[in-house]
Every structure is written in C-alpha cells, then in structure tokens.
Design a binder for these strands. Structure first.
Length: 645
RNA sequence: GCCGAUGUAGCUCAGCUGGCCAGAGCAGCUGAUUUGUAAUCAGCUGGUCGGGGGUUCGAAUCCCUCCAUCGGCUCCA
C-alpha cells in the first residue's frame, strides 16, 4: 500500500500501481470521468500512469490550467495524426500547447497546406477523436527512438532526440501516430469534442530565421461544442475592441500610404486624447522633480557612434541624411538618451546636483521590419515619454523606486490592473550582444532584482531580454486579442555615462561616474494609447475623452440656447460640442452613443425656459434634468475622482 | 525580412466559373420635415475596382510584379 496526500492535506492509502483515474474513482465517478491529468510529486503525469510510491497527488480537470494544457497538447497529437493520414510523408517539428490552444510545426514538403485544407483536417480530427484512441506512453532508449525517426525520415525529430539523454526519452502512441514526447496526455481522444483550427502561419524551425520555415497550424479544442461556440463569440467581441478598428471609427488616428507605412497621423480627437495623457504625466513628473528638456529630431552620426547605437542598429535604420558637406551625415534620432547625455555634459556637476532628471516627450524613428508594423503598437515614428535620471550609484535604488511609483500611479489612474512585471537580464552565453563590463552589468542587474524584491513586485525574470546597454524592468499589458505589449520600462545603464564620459565631482573632490536610468512610464504614446483604447473599448474615462458632452437641441428653435450651453461648458473647461443637424432627437442620441461621447445634453423648450439640460450618460440612459452649474460640478467631480484614484 | 491570406465609393460589404453602362446600405450634398432619449422622407453626388505590366476580341474577375493591410515567425535601442 502507498500513501497518497491530497492538496487539502488528507492522506489516503491505495494499492501500489494505482492511477490518478483510480484515485478519482475512489472519490466520485463524475470526477473520474473528468480527470485529464494529475500532478504527482510536482510533475504533471498521465492520469493513466501507475503510481508506485508515496506521493502528493493533485487531479486536473478542464477547469485547471494544467488540465487544459494536457487537453491541448493531446489535441496537437490528434491534429498531427489527422494531417499525417491526409497528407502522407509530412514531417513534424514541435507541437506544444499554448495559452489558448496548441500548434504544430509541420514540414509539408511539396504539398502546401492552405486554409481550405483546415476544414478537412478538423473533420478527420473529430473522426479520430470518436475512435477513443488511447495515448500510450512508451519508454525507449535513445537508439530505439532514433531508429524510429530515421526510418520515418523525420530529420526534425532526429535533431531533437540527439539533444536528449539516453534513459529519459519517451514516445507517445495514439492511433496511427507516434511522437517523441515527454507527455503527459489525455487518457484517450474522446475528451476532444470540438475542434477549430484557427490559423496557418510560417514559423522558422527552432525560431531561427536562418533555418527552414515550417508551416505552423494553430488550433484549439474543447470538451463541449458549446464551449467552442462561446470561445468564437468571445473572439468576435475582442475584435470589436481592436484599437485599429476603434481608432478608425472614433476618428482618433489614421495611416496614409502617401505618408508611409508605420507613420501614424493623429486626428484631432486622437491628438486631444494624447494631449490629456501628456498633460497628466507632465504634472506627475513636475511633482517628482523632473525638468523638461527639448532636443532635435536628428543628430550627427557621430553621436550614435559614441553611444553605440550606430554599431548595433545602423544597418537596420533609416539611411543617414547627408548634407552638402562631404562626409557629414545625420540620423533621425532612434533614441533620446544620447542627446540627453550631451545636455548633462553642458556643464560640470557636483554630487550635490544629483539626481538630475531630464524629461522629454521625444519623437524617435526606427525602421521596423515591414512585417512587424501593427496599428499603433508597432510603428516607425513614435513619441516616448522619455526621461533620463543621472544619479550616484547609491541613489539608484531610491530613484528606481520613484519611477515605479509613477508607473503604478498611471496604471492605477487608468485601471490597468492586469499587468506583468518583467525583469530582463542579459544572456551570459551571448555576451557579445551587449556592451559594457561584466562588473557594471552585475551591479545593474542586482540593483533591479533588489528593488523588485524590496517593492514586493511579483516580477518574472527573463534572461536574454536586456537592452544592449543594460538590464531593464518592463511592465507588460495584454491587448484585446491577448498579445502582450511592453508599456512602461525602466533601464539601468552604466555604459552610456562611460561612452559620453559623464562625470560629477564627489565630496572627495574627485571625478566620479554617474549612473543613468532610462525610463518611460507609458513607453510610447502610440502604443499606450493603443492599449488604452482596447482596455476601455473606446469608452475613455471622462478626463481623457476628446469630447466630453454633446448638446442635442430638439429642433432648430433651440439652437440659440444650445450655443449658450456650449458657451457655459467652454467657460467651465468642459469639452463640448453641438449636434445642430436637422435630425430627430432619437437619431442624434443614437449617433452620440455610437461615438461613445460620455454625456448627451438634450435641450428643448423646457430646458430653455428653466436654464437646465436633460442629461443622458453614455451606456446608462437618462439621468434627468440638471441645472447647468450642477452638471458642471458633477463632471468635475467625476474627472478628479478618476484621475486621482 | 520570411510564410500564408486579403485589397471594389469616406465606412461596411456584394459582384470575381472573364462578356449588359460596377452595385447596396451608411456617411456626404440638396430639398422637405422642426422633431423629447438608439436610425424622418425624397432626390443627388461619389469608384484610376491598391499601383504597374501581361494574356485575351473583351479583365474588378486569369497570370507576373510592386505596394499596403491582416494572421503568424523573426526582430524590437
């Protein structure tokens, strides 16, 4: 007999060789029917795999993330089986589960897969799932594994096996398909009831653009057809929040082929929105001791040679701007930091001056690869809410914390609750990708790690994601379709101060090297606005709304009163406008609702007589009649409350 | 940059197995209407069918190429 410990601490005894399904059965038949996999002593196992020692066991169903992962990983195998049967001779790369579903990378050889093939594959998958094929785990030696895939002629699997150690290789067989896989998998395919293959894309083998591009098929499966329907509806809903769609509908920004790809044009309403955000941050930064600076949009190539940007990115940038002078060249600035270093260098500094914080909404230009451009989130010209803090080494942590405070204030004001904090370190195996000494890197990295700990930030750490001059802490937020974007960023940099020979005189009357902190709470105005649009689905908080109140006269007769109301709004710092079209009230209300204007002020005979407005709130309906002053007060309260929350 | 898909009026879309003058709704304009909480009616305007090249008696429709956009990959100072 063995002891099985449950998550609640309960311990029960079972025969050695018991499986997770057996254990589930001992609890309830219903649970047994729903167990997809189980965690056994910290590892996720097949629900059918015998347990022969004392163990802590946790059962996973569709309601658990790990259960879904098992389902989707098994679905990838099922899809591979279907594809192999339909298109014999294809070779397989890797096929993992992902956050929402799974994919499989496939070398389809001569025969190209197209979207029209997906329906056939889905159909075959359902047929195979109904066969209730079990997933059979087989321990094999390295030689056996190699023999199998050599015979099959699958060079991708052979490459993977060659990197594995003998004795820890398993294959999984389901139906006619055998895969190199560490598992775990579903008890059988019958759990998969609904299948949707969502897209088809090219993906480099092992993520290396120098290697062959395979065909990646994305899909998702569910244990019930209804859940697939719900998922598809959810996807449709998410698409409605897409900032590219809303940006067009709400006339916030546009792109023009004539101006150029990735170069956003801010329309009046978008510019107003952005202006409110900038205004807010400027206020916060003033309080935090930042000094505004302004620098030009171009800089001499030598500036970027000094900073190291030229060596690192020169070949991938916009070409330099030449002048009538032979050999003279300028770059559109891709970064503000070199300019700010030169501002620091304008005069000598004492330790008593530090920290110095230079802030600039600086527009930068980067030649992003054409395939990377994406609405406002990835563009070729954008404005960073940039600032550079020059401080002594022992001020790093407090300055870093000050920046975190600003970022948290912004996120809170905009109700961004779901963000991920990421610490990006350099990859010690690829030191040639970075500039600067090991010692400085270690100092900078440990400073960030300590701050994260001391601030109690629940940060994830990713090796190899650092900037080329220093490690960073990024704040990531998801867009409507679940893609993660970096917004705020804080970067510790020991390198630029050296390259620009920045110094300050210490209390010992000796020259010392300051440390630089690069930081941008929004990241870029473009990306931040994009994420903001998706976050609030175009229904901006009042303080950011480009148009706060629209006056809707019932008929032309009340035009004069409408103008009086507008005058009042203007004097009260409320952004208002009048819909003076010869339309019925219903039509004007409908259009204002579609434009997501926060407040609609209906004015007619009664209002004119009493000097009031009938207030209708977007998405809430009629709020009743308000005295003008009363209305202004209500709006100002709402504005301040939201901004300072 | 790579793989795949898409590109028709300001917007959303139909037409696309090659063949009447390329259509609809919304928006816009003109007129009528003077309207009370999510679409008043009528008329009109508007399109190099993404650009260029080719095949054909004939191309929005087929082929090539470039550009842009979309889904991914790679990249992201």
């Amino acid at each position: 007999m063995i002891n099985i410990t449950f998550p609640d601490g309960n311990i029960r005894q079972y025969e050695s060789g018991v499986t997770a399904i057996d254990i589930a059965k001992s609890i309830s038949e219903g649970l047994a029917r729903n167990v997809l996999s189980a965690e056994v002593n910290g590892q996720v196992w097949d629900a059918t795999r015998p347990i022969s020692t004392d163990a802590t066991v946790r059962l996973f169903t569709w309601n658990d993330t790990a259960g879904k992962a098992t389902m989707w990983h098994s679905s990838a195998h099922l899809m591979a089986e279907a594809i192999e049967q339909l298109y014999p001779g294809v070779k397989f790369g890797i096929g993992p589960d992902i956050e929402n579903g799974f994919y499989y990378d496939i070398d389809t050889g001569e025969r190209l897969l197209t979207e029209s093939d997906l329906a056939d594959i889905e159909k075959r998958m359902i047929e195979l799932a109904k066969e209730k094929q079990s997933y059979l785990r087989v321990d094999v030696s390295k030689k056996e594994a190699l023999d199998h895939f050599v015979q099959k002629g699958d060079e991708y699997k052979i490459e993977l096996i060659n990197e594995l150690n003998d004795g820890e290789i398993t294959l999984y067989k389901s139906g006619t398909f055998t895969d190199l896989c560490r598992g775990p998998h579903l008890p059988d395919t019958s759990f998969i009831k609904a299948v949707k293959l969502t897209s088809l894309a090219g993906a480099y083998w092992r993520g290396d653009e120098k290697r062959k591009q395979l065909t990646r098929v994305y899909g998702i499966t569910f244990p019930k057809a209804k859940e697939l329907e719900d998922y598809l509806i959810l996807l449709e809903e998410a698409k409605k929040r897409d900032h590219r769609k809303l940006g067009k509908e709400l006339e916030l920004f546009a792109f023009s082929q004539r101006v150029g790809a990735g170069l956003p044009l801010w329309l009046p309403k978008g510019a107003m929105l952005r202006d409110r955000l900038e205004h807010f941050l400027k206020k916060v930064q003033k309080e935090a001791g930042y000094q505004p600076v302004i620098t030009p949009h171009i800089g001499n190539v030598n500036l970027y040679k000094t900073s190291g940007h030229f060596d690192k990115y020169g070949k991938d940038s916009f070409r330099p701007i030449t002048t009538p002078i032979e050999g003279e060249a300028f770059f559109l600035k891709p970064m503000n930091c070199p300019h700010h270093c030169e501002i620091y260098n304008v005069k000598p500094h004492s330790y008593k001056d530090l920290p110095i914080r230079y802030a600039e909404f600086g527009t930068v230009y980067r030649y992003e690869q054409s395939g990377e451009l994406h609405g406002l989130t990835r563009v070729r010209g954008f404005t960073q809410d940039d600032a550079h803090i020059f401080c002594t080494p022992d001020q790093i942590k407090s300055e870093f914390k000050g920046v975190i405070k600003i970022i948290m204030r912004i996120f809170k004001a905009l109700d961004f609750n779901e963000f991920v904090t990421q610490i990006s370190l350099r990859d010690p195996a690829n030191k040639e990708k970075y500039i600067g000494s090991d010692e400085n890197w270690e100092k900078a990295e440990s400073a960030i790690k300590e701050v994260a700990q001391e601030e109690g930030l629940n940060a994830i750490t990713v090796v190899g994601e650092a900037a080329f001059y220093g490690p960073k802490m990024d704040f990531m937020v998801k867009d409507a379709i679940g893609r993660k974007w970096q917004l705020g960023t804080i970067q510790v940099d020991y390198n630029l101060p050296e390259r620009f020979d920045l110094t300050y005189i210490g209390s010992d009357n000796e020259k010392h090297r300051p440390v630089m902190i690069h930081r941008a709470p929004f990241g870029s105005m473009e990306r931040f606005v994009a994420v903001l649009i998706e976050h609030c689905a175009g229904k901006f908080p009042l303080w950011l709304s480009p148009e706060q109140a629209i006056i809707l006269p019932i008929s032309e007769k009340y035009q004069a009163y409408a103008e009086k109301v507008l005058q009042f709004l203007n004097n009260s710092d409320i952004r208002g406008l009048i819909d003076d079209r010869s339309e019925k009230a219903g039509k004007k209300i409908r259009d204002a609702e579609l434009k997501k204007i926060p407040y609609m002020l209906v004015v007619g005979e009664r209002e004119e007589a009493d000097g009031t407005v009938s207030v209708r709130k977007h998405g809430h309906g009629d709020l009743g009649t308000f005295d003008l002053n009363q209305f202004a007060l209500m709006l100002h309260e709402e504005e301040t409350k939201l901004q300072n929350d």
